[in-house]
């Protein structure tokens, strides 16, 4: 269990100061995959570095299984860090060491014998599927392979927690998928708690159970991934959802007055968001019949958030205004979010 309580971190340099993290409190359960999403400069890296105290917060507590890391002396803190793995955007492998020795480097104080270390390294290489690259140097590997080595290294001391700071941001979409799959399987197989920092909506969407949205150093929204993204409350959250699917384009199209967004008199355009498994066709055809309104879908998108669907439809309703109101009310009661676009 990781608990951050009122963590604050300010950087001051030559007179000006940056409030990188402002009074953040979070609680992350064991075995959870917890995403922290935010645009560049939001304070995500600083926050995650506060968890293993690479960055010392000026106030607040960092509790891991009840131990307040900010109160530990240096030596004990270093011991504690061995149980918190970390991977990075740029992999940070030692160029002068082979893959084998990069992983072995993390085991230098493990107290294992030479044979035990060898066994451990080989099993880690198997876990990340890189047995054949054992004697390669990092410069001979692709980005995805480097990140796999970094993951193996981070897991060497059997950590209970893995911190991932933009671990897929330097990778192409396909490699990103494969690294996310690996992280997911590590989470399932070893039960490791994962904190995933990212500015990519796909990452959160694919593997995070919970998510916190950061902006200007604060967590502005937090909860189950599906909840946060089906009922976004903050503009920053909405803009992340827009980056994920094509649905965000509708706003541009409306602004440009594109033909597909032009309405006849009496028509209204709505964005419907649903996250339950209620079949949308049934509801739309139901309201259409019951309230005598025509509904035509002009745009649609269904995202899958860690196995749960999140649908978004742009629908043009035509009919009596009063009837449209009733139809909307019905859908809102059924748990569908409605946003008037035009």
């Amino acid at each position: 269990m990781i608990e951050l309580k009122h963590v604050t971190k300010t950087f001051s340099s030559s007179g000006s100061s940056v409030h990188a993290v402002k009074d953040v409190s979070l609680s992350i359960a064991d075995g959870e995959v917890f995403g922290i999403i935010g645009f560049s400069g939001a304070g995500k890296s600083t926050l995650v570095r506060c968890i293993n105290l690479l960055e010392r917060p000026e106030s607040g507590e960092v509790l891991i299984d009840g131990t307040d890391l900010t109160k530990l002396p240096e030596k004990e803190l270093r011991e504690f860090r061995k149980k918190i793995g970390m991977i990075f955007q740029h992999f940070n492998l030692m160029p002068s060491r082979t893959v084998y020795n990069n992983i072995g480097f993390a085991l230098r104080h493990s107290g294992l014998s030479k044979e035990e270390k060898d066994k451990k390294i080989l099993s880690l290489l198997e876990l990340v599927d890189l047995q054949d690259k054992k004697d390669a140097y990092p410069s001979q590997l692709s980005g995805g392979q480097k990140q796999r080595v970094a993951i193996a290294r981070a897991l060497a001391n059997d950590p209970r927690i893995l911190l991932c700071d933009e671990a897929t941001s330097a990778l192409d979409p396909q490699t990103t998928k494969s690294i996310l799959k690996l992280l997911e399987s590590v989470n399932k197989k070893l039960g490791i708690t994962m904190i995933i920092i990212t500015h990519q909506m796909e990452v959160v969407k694919d593997i995070c159970d919970k998510v916190a949205v950061m902006e200007h150093g604060s967590v502005v929204e937090e909860g189950e991934t599906i909840e946060v993204f089906s009922h976004p409350r903050k503009p920053v959250t909405k803009s992340f959802i827009e980056t994920a699917g094509s649905i965000g384009k509708i706003y541009d199209l409306i602004a440009e007055d594109s033909p597909i967004t032009r309405l006849a008199p009496g028509q209204k355009m709505y964005l419907l968001t649903y996250s339950t498994d209620t079949t949308r066709e049934a509801i739309i055809s139901y309201v259409s019949r019951t309230y005598d309104v025509d509904a035509s879908v002009s745009f649609g998108n269904v995202e899958v958030l860690k196995d749960k669907p999140l649908g978004k439809l742009v629908v043009i309703f035509s009919g009596e205004e009063e009837n449209i109101e009733k139809a909307l009310k019905y859908m809102q009661d059924a748990g569908i979010e409605t946003e008037e676009l035009k």
Binding site: L54, K75, R78
Partner: peptide, 15 residues
């Protein structure tokens, strides 16, 4: 030397 290597080593608990 890439500061990232130092960061990774500190995270690994090196003195």
């Amino acid at each position: 030397v890439d500061p990232g290597l130092v960061e990774a080593s500190e995270a690994m608990g090196l003195s």
